[in-house]
Design a protein around this nucleic acid. Structure first.
Length: 153
DNA sequence: GCCAACGTTGGC
DNA sequence: GCCAACGTTGGC
């Protein structure tokens, strides 16, 4: 089982929305490196740290599980959708989504500002390459973050 | 709202 | 295929 970190803007879709929905397609990713990882490396059963960005307190807010592997993101074919891509076609889709299930909302979100001060977490892509929307996480990093959430609580 | 970092586009 | 111009992201 692998670990990932997906970013989301909570104003659009938050960990609470995922908790309410139970599961949800993770669509709207429009970056080639993130796409390649979704399509080629993310597996059913992998765990995902859900990170809230572009909000008052950017933070890791919860954990999800991948329940469906990559499949074409339907919003790319919809001219009304914000993620519409006129250069993509159902015959050769350009963008993919996976489907997540809510596992747990952390007892306290772990702020990015705190993660930045944590020696054990300096190698996280969140710290080194914060813009990438699908990030690799080690099991040790995931465990560390969960312990931080528990002790903050 | 600023701005640094970084991704994408397109002329050559 | 280079690279300048431009657009986007996202923390602060």
């Amino acid at each position: 089982m692998g670990w990932w970190l997906f970013k989301t803007e909570p104003d659009s879709y938050s960990i609470d929305d995922l908790a309410r929905d139970g599961d949800s397609p993770w669509d709207g990713i429009r970056n080639y490196q993130a796409r390649n990882r979704l399509r080629d490396e993310v597996r059913v059963g992998d765990r995902v740290l859900i990170h809230h960005s572009s909000c008052r307190t950017p933070a890791i807010a919860g954990i999800a599980e991948v329940i469906r592997a990559a499949e074409p993101d339907p919003s790319q074919f919809n001219p009304q959708a914000s993620g519409y891509d006129p250069k993509s076609s159902p015959d050769s889709p350009r963008w993919f989504q996976v489907t997540l299930r809510h596992v747990r909302t952390l007892p306290a979100p772990v702020p990015l500002a705190v993660i930045r001060t944590e020696t054990a977490l300096q190698d996280m892509e969140l710290v080194r390459r914060p813009r990438l929307s699908v990030q690799k996480v080690t099991a040790a990093e995931a465990k560390h973050i969960q312990l931080m959430a528990k002790s903050q609580h």
